[in-house]
């Protein structure tokens, strides 16, 4: 696979799909159902706007979405009330598949959404986007609707439509450029073509989602890419430029925790795929430091990247979706 060719054929801009009427005609022709999942934890300030915009524009005005669901990790603010007030289906993650127990993490919500939601395509959108717009959803859905061979569409954000220079750098955030892309360059060079592998917005066919495991923490996006790549190759991927995304900026220390969790997931994947062998037993403890009264003090964080099995292995799921 030539990366430049893939970039040309499988990278889109949301404006390529401005004609929503045509998109809906195509969706209806294929009799597809689409669910939107917004995983939340204390997002009362942004969730109302997301629900209102998606419901108005992509259900009432253009019927692209068949359901809008909030899967909440147990917010202590008014996230669930606000989402419900504006007509979203709201689920507490711990109430879904109760027999499987309850784990904390965004990946847990994404995994449980596969059981709870009915769509043949699920679009995941983070709840902390300040400049939310319908393009965040239709830009990701359109490649799946128009091209049956595409299974997994990832968002990226690249502001300028015009630039005064011929070449300008383009890429992801700090964790992507310092950790993920170097790792992919070493072990999965083709995956480096995914401009923002950690973006929390993507649309995926159920047939893929139900067959891949879900780390419940920071590693979920990275493991998705490796697993889908391993099963289907690069042809299954596409990516869409959604322009600008305004969200909370994270502190470097929090990014350190994220990188630690991702690294655990990554190493476990390369070992299970037989790329690396005989790794020693690794610790789950991240050590960071701060200075108090001119004295360095150690901070210890236990970051355990637990994993949920492919949903297809869960008997209740197979029963609900007739997968026997």
């Amino acid at each position: 696979m030539n990366i430049n060719n893939w970039l040309k054929t499988n990278t889109f801009h949301h404006s390529d799909f401005w004609d929503l009427k045509q998109l809906i005609r195509e969706k209806e022709k294929q009799n597809l159902t689409v669910s939107l999942c917004i995983p939340t934890l204390n997002e009362e300030k942004t969730i109302g706007k997301e629900v209102v915009i998606f419901k108005s524009e992509l259900m009432n005005r253009y019927p692209l979405l068949d359901e809008i669901a909030i899967i909440d990790s147990g917010s202590t603010d008014k996230t669930r009330e606000v989402a419900e007030a504006f007509g979203a289906d709201v689920f507490l993650s711990s109430d879904i598949l109760k027999s499987m127990g309850e784990k904390q993490g965004k990946g847990e919500n994404l995994w449980k959404a596969i059981y709870q939601l009915k769509g043949e395509i699920i679009v995941y959108i983070d709840a902390d986007i300040k400049n939310i717009h319908p393009r965040f959803v239709y830009g990701l859905l359109a490649p799946l609707i128009y091209q049956p061979q595409i299974k997994y569409v990832k968002a990226f954000y690249d502001r300028p439509l015009a630039s005064s220079q011929g070449i300008r750098p383009s890429g992801g955030g700090r964790v992507t450029e310092i950790l993920i892309r170097p790792l992919f360059s070493l072990f999965f060079p083709e995956l480096t073509a995914i401009i923002q592998p950690l973006s929390g917005e993507y649309a995926v066919r159920r047939e893929i989602l139900e067959n891949i495991p879900f780390p419940i923490g920071y590693g979920v996006e990275t493991s998705h890419l490796i697993d889908v790549y391993h099963r289907c190759g690069m042809d299954a991927f596409a990516q869409t430029d959604l322009d600008k995304r305004v969200h909370r900026n994270q502190h470097t220390r929090d990014l350190g925790k994220m990188a630690f969790g991702i690294l655990q997931t990554f190493l476990s994947r390369v070992e299970s795929l037989g790329i690396l062998h005989d790794l020693p037993e690794l610790t789950n403890t991240l050590r960071q430091f701060h200075v108090k009264d001119n004295v360095f003090e150690e901070e210890v964080h236990d970051i355990v990247e637990e994993e949920r099995p492919p949903m297809i292995e869960v008997p209740q799921y197979r029963k609900k979706f007739n997968r026997n």
């Binding site: 706007k49 209102v52 915009i53 419901k55 108005s56 524009e57 005005r61 717009h133």
Partner: peptide
Amino acid sequence: QEILLANLVMIGE
């Protein structure tokens, strides 16, 4: 409601 509020948000932004 949703149509009006969505217009309000998108116009206001």
